[in-house]
Design a protein around this nucleic acid. Structure first.
Length: 294
DNA sequence: GGTAGACCTGGACGC
DNA sequence: GCGTCCAGGTCTACC
């Protein structure tokens, strides 16, 4: 079965795929040239499907490995639109960026969109897995979480969907520590899963909430395990760019870009992008850094 | 509001 | 093989 979805121009699937490290985490996958995005998705009633997304002249095509009802097709169309930001318009930012040599190429490359997970729950869990650890460990924890708790794809049981809040809520801290090796993050993950599964916390509503960014940030930071960096990262995914996700890598980049590699801190990173106002996060994310490796 | 120390894991390194 | 050090954000307690 194949769905066709249109995208607000300019759009490039490979640019979205390569927008950040999420593509290296399950249940995402891509080919060597980042021309195709595949992932395993669990539909609300519990059916697990494999999806293959490719670029078309006006957007993307979504192929599934089984037949779907109209409601299931609508669900997938909605989720893929969200994940790839198909309806996002960056023309206002492109107009500003055209005057900055370090960002001037963005429109030509169709940059701006960042790859998102189907649910904000999944994005929050993965963001928590990026904190206070090395990227290789983030991948390992995410792999283990999906392998241990995610529903497998019937057509290829080795592949799994990201675990639901209900599934994670049914486990315990000891199991999370032992099976997924998430360490002290176990109570954070469990607490979040239980809050979402019980209905006490409606994370999906935050995707479209009519809130000031400061209030949205406050709500995200009320989640245990989500601090300043994690909240800024999640706000980026929610299309709010007023904060820069300052981690050790951001500090290193800014240090080499403007301070000759001398030690700097969070204030220097924020100062460097202050004049971008509501677009700070986007300017930071797609800046053409002179420093590229560690 | 600012700061110190604890929280965990696993890779790197020295012995 | 073993022990030690280190990197990586957030939380809590304390001032």
């Amino acid at each position: 079965m194949k769905l066709i979805l249109s995208a607000y121009p300019p759009f490039s699937l490979s640019t979205v795929i390569q927008s950040h490290g999420w593509i290296q985490l399950p249940a995402f996958n891509t080919d060597g040239e980042a021309k195709e995005l595949t992932f395993v998705y669990r539909l609300t009633p519990g059916k697990v499907v494999g999806l293959r997304i490719q670029e078309t002249d006006s957007g993307v095509s979504v192929e599934t490995d089984c037949q779907l009802s109209q409601a299931e097709q609508d669900d997938i169309a909605c989720k893929v639109t969200w994940m790839l930001g198909l309806d996002q318009d960056y023309s206002a930012f492109y107009a500003l960026a055209s005057n900055e040599p370090k960002l001037a190429y963005m429109q030509e490359r169709a940059q701006g969109r960042v790859l998102r997970c189907p649910t904000l729950f999944e994005d929050v869990i993965k963001t928590i897995l990026t904190t206070n650890t090395l990227w290789a460990h983030t991948i390992r924890m995410a792999d283990a979480l999906v392998l241990e708790y995610g529903d497998s794809l019937p057509a290829d049981p080795a592949r799994h969907a990201f675990p639901t809040a209900e599934c994670l809520a049914a486990t315990d801290e000891e199991s999370l520590r032992a099976k997924a090796r998430v360490g002290y993050r176990a109570p954070y993950i469990l607490g979040l899963a239980r809050a979402v599964a019980s209905g006490d916390l409606d994370l999906e509503a935050l995707k479209t909430a009519d809130l000031y960014t400061t209030e949205l940030r406050k709500q995200l930071m009320a989640i245990k395990g989500v601090g300043g960096y994690a909240a800024a990262n999640l706000l980026m995914l929610l299309g709010r760019y007023a904060y820069v996700p300052v981690d050790s890598w951001a500090i290193k980049l800014v240090s080499h870009e403007w301070y000759n590699g001398e030690p700097v801190g969070q204030p220097e990173v924020e100062k460097a992008f202050e004049h971008w106002g509501e677009w700070k996060g986007l300017a930071f994310w797609f800046w053409d850094w002179s420093y590229h490796n560690g």
